[in-house]
């Protein structure tokens, strides 16, 4: 019990417990069949949510009103760009990934440019940007049916002993993100801005630069995510990123990051992503209809957030 107590105090533990519970419920239902396969599948799907979730987490941590609504459009466009640049050619994989990354960086930088130049709330800036990106994607990706290079598709689906390699790489990436958040000047600055932007500015934090970097980071992660998704699902499409608007925000909040900003939690993003993916798997296993699945997903998200409760605002 003495060992458990500090563990239970961690805000991220609940999302992992939730994921475990959902997983157990499903294997009880199937009588133990497919328990391992389910974890493998959940890991490979959770990866995509985790990558954008981390970007969204940094943005949300900047404080109230900071959220990146352009992620779905970003993912869609980057997936199309990556597929077009790679053009089914193994030797172009790295170039395609770089192109997707560049697309994401450009979108993130454009987002911040709108926020800074027009001094508008980030929600509306990223929203207007996403309208425009969406149109570019529809026009650019029309009739695009290029398959990813075989090497890239194999890489995105590559597993070692039932563990997706992409998941291992993402774990490494999230460890890096956690270190950046807690131990590096950049991360500490993001937290400081989220707690009190004026105090952070008075303390000498370059607020503008940190916010610019954060939106660019979120954009870059969206771009990479788009390319990987196109590899995993073997093709780009305009709607490929749609579900990541809710998912990216939901995993951040369920994972224990404060929506009021200034308090972030990296492991929770993993727990929450696994929870959401396993939840979907469970509902599919139970064989419920699409309507009931959506209904229950929504109710569980509202339920979880109600149970977790909001923090009292600092001001």
């Amino acid at each position: 019990m003495a060992v458990l107590k500090p563990l239970l105090a961690k805000p991220w533990i609940w999302s992992f417990l939730g994921a475990l519970l959902v997983w157990l419920a499903t294997i009880v239902f199937t009588g133990g069949y497919g328990a391992g396969g389910m974890v493998t599948a959940a890991l490979s799907l959770a990866v995509f949510t985790v990558i954008v979730g981390v970007g969204q987490m940094f943005v949300i941590t900047l404080g109230p009103g900071n959220v990146d609504l352009s992620l779905p459009a970003n993912i869609g466009l980057a997936s199309a760009v990556a597929m077009k640049v790679m053009d089914g050619n193994d030797s172009m994989i790295a170039v395609g990934l770089l192109a997707a990354l560049a697309t994401g960086v450009a979108i993130g930088a454009a987002n911040y440019l709108l926020i800074w130049a027009l001094r508008i709330p980030p929600i509306i800036a990223t929203l207007s940007a996403s309208f425009i990106i969406q149109s570019i994607d529809i026009s650019y990706g029309r009739g695009l049916q290029i398959k990813p290079p075989p090497g890239f598709a194999d890489f995105a689906n590559w597993q070692v002993l039932g563990i997706p390699v992409l998941a291992i790489l993402t774990v490494l990436f999230t460890i890096g993100a956690a270190i950046a958040l807690q131990r590096m000047i950049y991360g500490r600055s993001v937290l400081a801005i989220g707690q009190n932007i004026r105090a952070a500015w008075l303390a000498g934090v370059n607020v503008g630069r940190i916010r610019f970097l954060t939106y660019t980071l979120s954009g870059a992660l969206g771009g990479i995510d788009g390319a990987l998704l196109a590899g995993y699902f073997r093709g780009a499409n305009v709607d490929i990123g749609n579900e990541y608007l809710l998912a990216s925000i939901a995993v951040v909040v369920i994972g224990g990051t404060s929506v009021a900003g200034g308090k972030a939690n990296v492991p929770g993003v993993w727990g929450a992503a696994l929870f959401l993916v396993l939840l979907l798997t469970m509902l599919n296993t139970f064989g419920v209809s699409a309507g009931v699945r959506l209904l229950l997903t929504g109710l569980i998200i509202v339920g979880v957030i109600t149970a977790a409760g909001g923090q009292k605002a600092l001001r």
């Binding site: 809710l246 699409a290 699945r293 929504g298 998200i301 509202v302 957030i305 409760g309 909001g310 009292k312």
Partner: peptide, 25 residues
């Protein structure tokens, strides 16, 4: 509960969509 409305309503958007599909598949 002092909840963030963005998340609650995002969850509710699934609920309404699910109900809509149940009412009119």
């Amino acid at each position: 509960r002092n909840l963030p409305s963005i998340v609650v309503t995002l969850g509710m958007s699934f609920v309404w969509q699910g109900l809509a599909i149940l009412v009119l598949p």
